[in-house]
Amino acid sequence: MPALDVAAGDALQQRLQLQLVLADVLVTEAAALDSREFRNWLAFFTADLLYWVPIRSTRSASDRDKEFTKYGEPAFYDETFRELEARIVKLESGWSWSEDPPSRTRRFVSNVRVIETHSDRDVTVESNLLLYRSRLDADTDIWTARRVDRMRLEDDRWKIARRSVFLDTTVLVASNLGVFF
């Protein structure tokens, strides 16, 4: 039986500790959205945020690099912090019919892992998102996505500076896509 590698054990512990901290941020953020605390939700993002949900299409295996639109091309969402905030203004306006009556949403965030460490205050985190939405009488939508977040430690708080959401659907089947991922 190999001897326990103490140094490797410490590194593993540090890595998992950071992963837990970041996962905690992501599930707390999801809870803010599910409870429709949109202003609190915005506080999870840095002022230079870029929030992006590209469009997906079905491509052959040899063309897989063309599945998603590239950054700068058309997207479902391509937002700065100010633009995301303007979408919150829309939701708060009292005229936002697609979300009033509000959707009942439940977000499940899992498979959180750091995929790149840029510095001890700047990492790229990947997670899976399952978003269930129930609306009106019996309209239901389920979306799943791979999310890639660039997270930075800012004022002792991990915030999201870049969010890319890679949906698993191509044809969107729903009355609208008035929710955030």
Binding site: T69, V171, S175
Partner: peptide, 9 residues
């Protein structure tokens, strides 16, 4: 523009 949206309602 690339990536036409397809949306079924």
């Amino acid at each position: 523009a690339p990536g036409p949206l397809r949306w079924r309602q």
